[in-house]
Every structure is written in C-alpha cells, then in structure tokens.
Design a binder for these strands. Structure first.
Length: 352
DNA sequence: GCCATTTGACCGCG
DNA sequence: CGCGGTCAAATGGC
C-alpha cells in the first residue's frame, strides 16, 4: 500500500517536473525565433502534464468528468490515465477491477473528432487512425439515424490498453463520422509508426546476424539506405505537426544536419544505427513502459488515405488554439531540426 | 483453429 | 424505467 503510494508520488513528482522542464523550454523558445507551432506544442504538453498530475491527485475522489482543454492539436494518447491492467485470474479481483475500471472511466478524458470521409476511397469509415481497434458493440442511439459503434484497442488484453472509441455517423452529413476517444493508448505496437519502426528493427537485427558475409559492409550500407528510405517514406505518410513531434520521439545528438546528399546519407545511417533503433527499441518494443504520455506520438494526426482530419470539434471547453490545425507535411524540416537530447522516455522513475 | 464482427442480453446511471 | 455502454455467445472469414 505504502509502496503503491510512493510509486504514485514519484510519478506525480516526475509529472510536475516534466511540466517545469517544458515550461523552461518554452521560455527559451519565447526568446528565439521558433515557430508558433513549436510554442503551442510546448504549451499543450505543459497543460497535459499538469492535467495528468491533477487527475492523479483526484484519484479515489468522487468521480469528476475531466475534459481535456486541448483537443485541437493533440492526440488522444496524451490525456487518458489508463494504466496497463494486470492479469486477473480470480473472479473477485476481476469484479474489483471491473469496478475500478468503471470508476476510472468516469475520470477519463473524452474528446471528439469529426472525421470526414472522402467518397470514392472505398473506406467505410474512419477506420485507420494509426491504431488497431476491435469492435465490441453497436447500439442504436435515440434520435440518431445511424447506430453508434463501440471500439476498443486490440491490445486491451495483451497490453492492458484501455483506449476506446465510439464512432457515430453524423445525421446531417453522412460522410462525417464523429469519433469520440476515451483513454490513452498504453500499447506501443499498434501505431503505423511503430509497425514501421518494428520492421526496421527486425531488419536491422537480421542484418546484424548476417554480418559475417564478405560483402557485409556493402550490403549493410545498401540495405540501410533502403531502410532509411522506407522509413522516411513511412514518416512522410504521417502528418507531423511540428518538428517537436519528431524531436520528442527520439534522442539525438545536437547536430546540424548538412544539406548535401552524401552527408544526409551518412546522417541517416548513423541515425539508424545509433539513435533511432536504440530509442525505438526502448520506446516501442518494451510494453513495460506503461506510461506513454512521454511518447509524443499523434496517431490522430496521421493523415489517412482519403480521410480528412481537419474537421475537428472539441467536445468540451476546449481552449482551442489557433493556427494549429495546419499540418506541416514538409519532411525537409527534419533536416534542419536541432534534436532534443532528452528523450522523454529516459525517465528512470517511470521505467522502474 | 484463430481472430474479428455481430447482436441480443445485461448492467449502471440519471 | 429508459438509455447508453459493455459483455459474451454465435457467427463468419481467413
């Protein structure tokens, strides 16, 4: 009991420290010529940290509907408080957990997105938002022409991910789906990004095993180039908001990337060999890192084929931020980014 | 056989 | 008591 409290307290402190650090970073950004998007992103991260800390303090208190103040830019994964469930074998415990989950759910933030489906894509609905969902119910809703679909994360049982979403087709415009998310994903392998990175890691380990060939270096270099190309293509297909999205994902040395192709190739190779793979294996491969709020990944900003994510309606008192809806799809950004040296997951407190 | 979806039943909240 | 949300058996696809 006491240990659990200690653990929560540590996480709480860490969360508050995170907020402080982000605030410090924001201060630096204010003095520099950084983009408004970067600052906005930091502000939202700060708010996210404090919201999380506050919701932790509310733990066990009468259920309060916490609605996120930021819904314009950020992904669902920032806000929820779901922790990975433990394996439950006995019924009593199951019931207890059930009740807890219910209690939790009340405190879980909810937010709604309106997703427009462009006709002719063959897509039935806003299916691909970067995560794997499993439908567990459908219900006719009073006053609605279309039934509401209930989805939960595919990795609910395997990884204890409690993220859920509800999909409701709009009465007014049947091409618009209102997607209400609940809970943050605590699973890592579900995102398209993770899939891409996992395949990278697999490929790399394969390379390492095949490393005894004579033309090893040549082959390795060739394959790595191929891989980095595929990887960047995959990343391009995501919709990153700002360079912050990138630098919060990885831990990179503070280097200024040259513009020459040769230098870029060298960069990509070293990036793959030394940084990305290492970081990714920490971030994505180990589901034990239960708190993914430090992983600034925005599945809902991934541009889906034929699906327009620009229409977005915060469910509640959104301190909706201006000018943040414009996606930055320019991959060249990466070439000019000064990557942050602090990989957010490198927090011993949280990994313990 | 495994996994995802469907669908009627059940439960809790207002 | 009605409604929204979830469960779980049945069903279907691969």
């Amino acid at each position: 009991m006491e240990k659990a409290m200690d653990c929560e307290q540590k996480i709480l402190i860490s969360e508050l420290n995170q907020g402080k650090e982000l605030a410090e970073r924001l201060r630096k950004h204010l003095n520099s010529i950084s983009s408004p998007e970067s600052r906005q992103f930091l502000v939202e991260q700060i708010l996210s940290s404090y919201e999380k800390a506050l919701s932790m303090l509310n733990w066990g208190a009468p259920a309060v509907e916490i609605t996120p103040t930021i819904t314009t830019l950020e992904s669902p994964c920032y806000y929820a408080n779901c922790s990975p469930g433990s394996d439950v074998s006995d019924q009593d415990c199951k019931d207890q957990c059930h009740k807890n989950i219910y209690k939790k759910r009340k405190t879980e933030p909810r937010w709604t997105e309106q997703v427009k489906v462009i006709s002719g894509t063959g897509l039935e609905g806003p299916v691909d938002d970067g995560y794997n969902w499993r439908k567990y119910g459908q219900k006719d809703i009073l006053g609605a022409n279309f039934p509401r679909g209930y989805y939960r994360c595919t990795h609910r049982h395997s990884q204890g991910c409690l993220a859920t979403k509800q999909v409701q087709r709009s009465d007014q415009d049947p091409t618009i789906f209102e997607v209400t998310y609940r809970g943050r994903h605590t699973c890592f392998q579900t995102s398209r990004f993770a899939i891409a990175s996992t395949s990278l890691i697999n490929a790399k380990s394969k390379l390492d095993k095949e490393g005894c060939q004579l033309e090893e270096q040549e082959q390795k270099s060739k394959l790595l180039k191929e891989l980095s190309f595929n990887f960047t293509e995959e990343l391009k297909s995501q919709e990153w908001n700002t360079e912050d999205d990138i630098f919060h994902l990885f831990s990179f040395p503070e280097t200024t990337i040259g513009s020459g192709d040769e230098e870029n190739d060298i960069f990509k190779e070293s990036m793959l060999e030394n940084n990305i793979l290492g970081s990714l294996s920490t971030a994505f491969i180990s589901p034990a890192t239960s708190d993914s709020s430090y992983l600034a990944m925005s599945p809902c900003h991934m541009n889906n084929l034929g699906i327009d994510h620009n229409v977005r309606t915060p469910e509640s008192n959104s301190a909706s931020t201006s000018g943040t809806n414009s996606p930055i799809g320019d991959w060249d950004l990466l070439d000019n980014v000064d990557f942050d040296t602090n990989f957010p997951l490198d927090n011993p407190e949280l990994l313990a």
